[in-house]
Design a protein around this nucleic acid. Sequence first.
RNA 1: GCGAGAGUGGCGGAAUGGCAGACGCGCUGGACUUAGGAUCCAGUGUCUUCGGACGUGAGGGUUCAAGUCCCUCCUCUCGCACCA
Length: 950
Amino acid sequence: MTETVTAAQPSDNAAPAHRYNAELAARIEQHWQERWDREGTFEAPNPSGPMGEPDKVGGRPKLYVLDMFPYPSGSGLHVGHPLGYIATDVFGRYKRMTGHNVLHALGYDAFGLPAEQYAVQTGTHPRVTTEANVANMRRQLGRLGLAHDKRRSVATTDVEFYKWTQWIFLQIYNSWYDEELQRARPIDTLTEAYAAGNKATPDGRPWELLTQAEQHDLIDGARLAYISQAPVNWCPGLGTVLANEEVTADGRSERGNFPVHKRNLRQWMMRITAYSERLLADLDRLDWPEPIKLMQRNWIGRSEGALVRFALAGSAEQVEVFTTRPDTLFGATYMVLAPEHPLLDSIVPDAWPAGDLPPSWTSGAATPAEAVAAYRRAAGVKSDVERQVDSREKTGVFTGVYAVNPADGRELPVFVADYVLMGYGTGAIMAVPAEDERDWAFADAFGLPVIRTVAPPEGFSGGAYTGSGPSINSGFLDGLQMPETKRLMTEWLTERGLGEARVTFKLRDWLFSRQRYWGEPFPIVYDESGRALPVPEEMLPVELPDVDDYSPRTFAPDDYTSEPEPPLGRAQDWVNVTLDLGDGPKPYRRETNTMPQWAGSCWYELRYLDPTNTERFVDPDVERYWMGPKSETHIGGVDLYVGGAEHAVLHLLYSRFWHKVLFDLGFVSSGEPFHGLFNQGYIQAYAYVDARGVYVPAERVEERDGGYFYEGEPVRREYGKMGKSLRNAVTPDDMFAEYGADTLRLYEMSMGPLESSRPWDTRAVVGSYRFLQRVWRMVVDEETGAVRVSEEAPTDELNRLLHKTIDGVRSDFGDLKFNTSVAKLIELTNAVTKAGGPAPRVVVEAVVLMLAPLAPHTAEELWSRLGHGETLAYEAFPVADPALLVEDTVTCVVQVGGKVRDRLEVPAGIGEDELRALALATPGAQRALEGREVRTVVVRPPRLVNIVPV
RNA sequence: GCGAGAGUGGCGGAAUGGCAGACGCGCUGGACUUAGGAUCCAGUGUCUUCGGACGUGAGGGUUCAAGUCCCUCCUCUCGCACCA
């Protein structure tokens, strides 16, 4: 039986009763969405398990297409939000029509700061607001008719979801990184290795001679999730600590724009640095945009160099530095320690060395201890913002200590200065002003000597020379070039035990705890001695308690001495528990920090695969089917992941890390979570500012006489992100009401290349609407509602255009070039319209099938009216006949000196000589030549001839 | 400062080194209309002596041929930013 939607009652007497308009579109859209839901059209079969339908899986290639899932924000969607979702939907629908088993689902990233802040603002519990926001987003997105498997729509805040987030945390917690094998292993294997004597303890004592506490500390210190007391980003304004990735370049919080201060705090960390090398290397195996790979490479920041040990004059202590320029060791004229460097606690003498010291070195202090203490205090108090403001001005003080250059025995003054960072390398440097701009600036300010070890090129004007050139003043290295001198110097140091080759990374361990309510509780408790212990798997989930006061404890933004106070600390009934962890019931205190926003998004793509599994986070067979490696060289992962570029070093790095741990522990077969990545652009919009500098509602601004006016007053136009703050948001709801969902989908896909940002233009939407109306009219008589297509074969010309279009649309869809595929469909439709009379069925049906991924509701309705009973979601996508892609005759361009002077209709298979003769004889060529002699003729049959005159 | 990407009609954008501006918006004219912010049709880069000339941020180069490749510069966007 065919099912069709009855005609809309025309609200306007003059318009034809069966015209495609917003009302009819709405009815069609509702009808087909209900039918798809009823029939489970887009439910993707798994190979096994609760969603297993092996007979439907067999023989079909699989495709896992994924969107970066949304935060359910309180303000609802604007038309920019669904851009990527529509694109993946078109792609998935297309692939389904080419025989693929397509998995496409959408969940919600519902924990985290935005949801919590919205709850605090509205005074409603975050669970309530989150659920309401999710429901509203489901409604708005649902209206778009996205072909999602709704059974798989999980939210990170679902207890059944975060139970597994906690479970994965435990796996990470219960693992260590075996540097020898270059992979994570269960923590028990480390204990066994120590106990069996296969691995030496740090101080060399046998394992059994360590106290139980010492054993515990050693093991806890090796875990991939661990507690550390270290400088972290403390944001009093938000009342929480933040990861490096969540702090902006000017030292502020990405959320809320509050100042961030460095503070020593006890926090949970994830040992992502153990994976630096693999996270870097495996980028080469991913099908990702190069700019994103580059951003990750830069963030991981691998540099090769050498570790060099400097003895301190008159002391047993030594200073270790990392340098990428061991070749410049002979040019080191001083050293610098970071203000946080631990050696400063022990090496600073009580009196300045004998002799005159410049006042800048001592900062006027009576003793080095005083000077250093004052400088360290000042540096510690500085927020990152203040460090930014101070910019590159070099400050520091002399420590009163001299180090010895291992290359030539010269004494080098040791300074403390905040241009050296404790977080990178060893927190200390050898300073080579001649070949480093920062060292030059410092040396300049403190009157330190400069020794060049690389000859600058002729005409070099002075300052630090960081380029390459022959070595000078470098002992045995003189005359050699940089790669050679680096190697030789490293060898020299190694032989003498003064240093060795070293690789250093910029990547820091990931700060994993937050002082917020709305996040996953840690599956961790503390015993009476304060030791952290994991909650056993069978006691999961550790449910987030329902509390009345969930607001964060925030402070004045600059109150850097404030102490973080997790809101869960107030839920005393929840915090204090009695548990039996295997040694009888005992009292414990729960961890009151929660996990960061990113935790759920680190693995959600795995849960879509097997969302109802109560035994495992994902079934191994199901994971292997959807995400496993496709060949020996393929690393596995989601086939296509689409989202914005803003997650380049946050979500995309964290989730790769989690996935690799799960891979090492044997829980997944894929070595990477996301094999294919595509960054869509953003929809932007014009915004308008009045004379007071206030944004006015963009939809009420008029354009006339080349200017813009709001309520008669001139306003200034700006361009930026669509949203509330610029008062330029356009909601999909308005577009649905005016044109219907298919028009919105089509418009968003036709605006421009998916990867580039583009301005929204509400006026232009009507173009997509008119196109759908023309397609509709091609099938349905607007007056009577009758289907009118011709059963006759199309003309040869139209048939060729049809097959050319099929060929082009196929490759465009495959490459996510939706804008040009729409253009091709419009061209074909216009050609059919222009021919007049009823359109041939074969052409019409092909157009409907090709339109289906873009405008699925309209296409389904037309397909149904054309007499088909089944959904077209699984119809075969039209295939071009190669014979019809070869044209009989083509237009040949005749150029003279590269300029087009004439055209020729020639057979496609024309020979070179014949074409040359024809071209030379054309009137256009003759006129342009004006009797000039022909030097040469370039003939590219059958499309082009270029006659080159003398 | 370093790194990456991008500059094409009034606007969004098309163009495996081979006819620049596909397709859409807007605009102009026309048809149908009581009406049009509906729909349909035609036109629409600039200049033009109607032959043509010019035209893809600027300048140079390679080539029979350059929006496309190379060099220099300008502008914009994004990322990083004392990482030794």
